[in-house]
Design a protein around this nucleic acid. Sequence first.
DNA 1: ACCTGAACACCGTTCAAGT
DNA 2: ACCTGAACACCGTTCAAGT
Lengths: 201, 201
Amino acid sequence: MGRRNEHTREELREIALRAAESLVAAQGLAGLSARKVVGRIGYTVGSLYMVFRSLDELILQTNERTLDALYEKLAAAVADRPPPGVAIRALARAYIAFALTETPRWLAIYQHRLPEGQIVPDSFSEKVARMFELVQRELALLAPRRSPDDIALAARALWSGVHGVCILGFDRKLESVGGRSVEQVADSLLDNYLSGFIDAD
Amino acid sequence: MGRRNEHTREELREIALRAAESLVAAQGLAGLSARKVVGRIGYTVGSLYMVFRSLDELILQTNERTLDALYEKLAAAVADRPPPGVAIRALARAYIAFALTETPRWLAIYQHRLPEGQIVPDSFSEKVARMFELVQRELALLAPRRSPDDIALAARALWSGVHGVCILGFDRKLESVGGRSVEQVADSLLDNYLSGFIDAD
DNA sequence: ACCTGAACACCGTTCAAGT
DNA sequence: ACCTGAACACCGTTCAAGT
């Protein structure tokens, strides 16, 4: 057999990533495998390694696409430039909404861990930095007398906090604290943090 | 062959859990497998299923032990009953210290996910609830006029926040915000949240 | 009753062989 | 050059067979 040549390398990469994306969306990161991906696109295992160095690389690239989608939602949430206090809450709500509606794809970003010693590619880190900047911009407007360092620290604290609320909120494991929605907990975090942050400005 | 009978069921369970614990500590959750566990204790694969329903159950029980160890550290951090503002920071620092020194075991608690539909056993949830109560107790002392509901919400927000800081701090993925230590970010979160929380009390 | 070890249905990755 | 499919070294889980 061999030689199908129906797709260019780039096309093959594209359909493989799309197949991976829908597998993760349907069955979570654990439901993804090299054989399942190629099965969906009519190739055999070996072909995957023509386009990706490893399954980890395919997952990383799938996750980068999820980061792109997430960034679009966040940017859209503040596209009409509301006042910064409103904007920060809108960003948090958009993050939570994404986590709620795209749970498996969102989770996959954090579930995936590179083998010991390997480091995430720059393209990945840049996409994360871009998201942080959205938050920093609003914080800078909110507390104009703070140093860039303070703003960066606050952005990180707040973002980590909202993320933590989402992660623990979806883990039924840690649901133990009765009947509070992810949104309520996130609001508590934002309201109290921001009032402390602004007062000290 | 067969019939070794060197260990009671309870002993077998104990040495299996110990082997699992040290595998996770050394190689992370991904480095754990049924065959590796039994290999370390001189049994064959089948034996594991005499004592655990599945590998997931073994992991869950390993994680419960980690929760026990974590609880001990947290309780010890406030054993001398410092004033509540100090106690809350001590709890956060103890959590961070555990995450830093026992990273693979701590991570395993959150990396492990039950198959769709399965729910965490009560013994697990109780251990988590116990940790929450440590935080709630201090918050109640700090803001005595708040309702139990408010206290529970605040405990959850704060705890999620500190956890988020740890998770994103260890993910080199999201390190992108320059040179801030996990402790610094956590302090920012606590200081600002608590000042907002107390002012409104 | 306890334990083994083969069997089954999966993995990720490599690579000689075919077109 | 592209692609296959067998091979290798792993998985989790089950279960007939042995003591």
